[in-house]
Each structure stands twice: as structure tokens, then as C-alpha cells.
Simulated scan of single mutants.
Amino acid sequence: MRYHPKLMDELNLLLHFNLDTNQQGIKVHHDAEPGMIDAAASLHGKGLITQVDGGYLTELGRETAEHAQAMLGLLKE
């Protein structure tokens, strides 16, 4: 399996969450890039975020976001 554009959008959206607190969520507005709107809906469908347009990370979502942020830290220059 490869990283395809939809998966990359999901990973990029997970990078927007502040992992220093559970009290801060995100909102993907209706005029956002279509890929981000679709990514939010997909992450919600997978049980990773609480709302179809963002919200907060679920427990599984937080773990996934931690991995996504760690992976970015390892791979960036």
C-alpha cells in the first residue's frame, strides 16, 4: 500500500491537532480545501475525531496523531 493523496490529506489534518492539550480541537470550515473537508469526514468515519468537521481527537485519534507527528519529525530534514 502506498501513501495516496487522500491518506496524505488525513495525515496532514492530524498534524493540526495540538497534542499538548485535550481541550483544543479543530474546525474544518465549509470553504476549506476539498481534500481537508473529505479528510475530516474520513477521520470521523474511522473514529479518530469526534465531529465530521473536526472536533476533538478520540483516544485512538490521539494515538494516531502522535504517530503521524513522530513520523514527520523523523523524516523531515
Score class of each variant (00 low, 15 high):
64 T>D: 03
25 G>E: 04
43 L>R: 00
77 E>S: 05
10 E>G: 00
4 H>A: 06
6 K>L: 15
37 I>A: 02
40 A>G: 04
25 G>V: 10
3 Y>G: 12
47 G>V: 05
19 L>M: 12
1 M>Q: 15
54 G>A: 06
63 E>C: 08
1 M>I: 05
69 Q>S: 15
19 L>S: 02
59 E>N: 14
20 D>N: 11
50 T>R: 00
13 L>F: 02
63 E>V: 05
73 G>W: 15
64 T>Y: 11
55 G>K: 10
15 L>H: 13
61 G>N: 03
4 H>K: 15
31 D>E: 07
27 K>M: 09
68 A>F: 11
27 K>L: 13
17 F>T: 01
70 A>F: 12
53 D>C: 06
33 E>Y: 14
41 A>H: 09
53 D>W: 06
30 H>K: 08
47 G>Y: 06
37 I>N: 02
24 Q>V: 07
45 G>C: 03
19 L>E: 02
60 L>Y: 15
57 L>W: 03
76 K>M: 10
65 A>R: 03
22 N>H: 08
5 P>F: 06
76 K>W: 12
24 Q>F: 15
72 L>G: 07
17 F>L: 03
11 L>I: 02
68 A>G: 12
26 I>E: 01
8 M>G: 10
67 H>T: 13
27 K>T: 07
1 M>F: 07
65 A>W: 04
65 A>L: 11
8 M>S: 12
20 D>T: 14
19 L>Y: 04
3 Y>E: 08
14 L>G: 02
36 M>K: 10
72 L>N: 10
11 L>W: 01
30 H>N: 13
4 H>M: 14
26 I>Q: 05
73 G>R: 08
31 D>V: 11
57 L>Q: 01
72 L>H: 09
39 A>H: 00
47 G>H: 04
73 G>L: 08
35 G>R: 04
49 I>S: 00
35 G>L: 08
45 G>A: 02
51 Q>A: 04
13 L>Q: 00
59 E>P: 12
24 Q>W: 15
55 G>V: 10
26 I>P: 00
4 H>Y: 11
32 A>R: 02
28 V>M: 03
62 R>D: 04
2 R>Q: 11
73 G>P: 05
24 Q>L: 15
5 P>M: 10
9 D>R: 00
59 E>C: 06
31 D>K: 05
3 Y>F: 11
51 Q>M: 09
23 Q>T: 09
